[in-house]
């Protein structure tokens, strides 16, 4: 099965990414435009293919622009996580011994700090310096991406450590070490390049977790800054729709479906050739 499923998944992701990238130039309604006369229209209404929300904003447009944010948060957040976790884990695995123990113990400890404490701290620090940041082109969204990526570097570091431990015991690396190659050179020449295949999979598998984390933060009201929207934010706004009084099921169902399909596709793509995850 996996071959065509994988192709399908790649196709879906590619189409979604393209749609998200070109969304601003598509002939769709402004996703922020409110319309008091078109509130809570069900999918299939004229001019609003997927219906509207309680302010009359077009759900299709919001889903497309939400894709921009959710995919961006997923991809860049994960990238940030890797940029921090990778060197950390690689150094720990390669040096071993006391340094390894210290680094991993520190990682354990940081992992136990409640996530929200971390989020609030990061957001508050980043906000303190937002004027300085803006000078170098760092807006609110970028700050958010860094903060969310920062939450996920620990698992990356762990995987990177295990892999670099394995690689550093391979004969050619041992040989290099015995010949007096410096740690830095070993890292650059042997460890990092060989980490790449593992990381590719890791990257694809971390994206869904980052996207879900953004959904959770949106649930708490700490998500991306309005008027930008994300799928998680849309879904958590639609949560009230799950009862007999609110018949606007599409406000919850469609963003959730978008999330699930994308994450399914990512998992399919990230799966190894043998079907293992």
């Amino acid at each position: 099965m996996s071959l065509w499923a994988k192709r399908l998944a790649w196709g879906f992701l590619a189409a979604l990414t393209i749609a998200a990238v070109v969304a601003p130039w598509l002939p769709i309604v402004d996703y922020r435009a409110m319309d008091a006369d078109a509130r809570l229209l069900p999918p299939g209404s004229e001019g609003h293919l997927l219906g509207t929300d309680a302010q009359g904003r077009d759900l299709l447009a919001r889903l497309l622009f939400g894709a921009r944010i959710s995919l961006l948060v997923g991809a860049v957040g994960t990238l940030v996580a890797m940029l921090i976790g990778l060197p950390y884990g690689a150094v720990a695995g390669l040096r071993g011994g006391r340094i390894d123990r210290f680094l991993m113990r520190l990682a354990d400890a940081l992992e136990s700090v409640p996530m929200v404490v971390m989020v609030l701290f990061l957001l508050s620090i980043l906000r303190e310096y937002r004027v300085e940041m803006e000078v170098i082109g760092f807006g609110r969204l970028q700050l958010f991406l860094v903060a969310i990526g920062f939450l996920f570097w620990l698992p990356t570091a762990r995987v990177a450590r295990a892999e670099s431990l394995r690689i550093s015991r391979l004969p050619f690396v041992t040989a290099a070490r015995l010949q007096g190659m410096s740690t830095r050179a070993q890292l650059r020449r042997h460890i990092l390049p060989n980490l790449w295949p593992t990381l590719r999979v890791m990257w694809l598998l971390t994206i869904p977790r980052v996207i879900l984390m953004e959904a959770f933060l949106s649930f708490l009201g700490l998500g991306v800054e309005a008027p930008a929207v994300s799928w998680g934010g849309l879904a958590s706004d639609g949560l009230a729709a799950m009862n007999p009084l609110v018949a606007s099921w599409w406000l919850l169902a469609l963003p959730s479906a978008a999330l699930v399909l994308t994450l399914l596709a990512l998992q399919q793509v990230g799966r190894g050739e043998d079907g293992s995850t």
Binding site: P208, A215, F216, F219, S256, L264
Partner: peptide
């Protein structure tokens, strides 16, 4: 299993309430 992992848990909870309670 993959779908269950991909759903935010507030969606899952909402769906469960809609089904079992309402």
């Amino acid at each position: 299993a993959t779908v269950l992992l991909a759903l935010p848990n507030f969606v899952l909870a909402g769906a469960a309430i809609a089904l079992f309670s309402f």
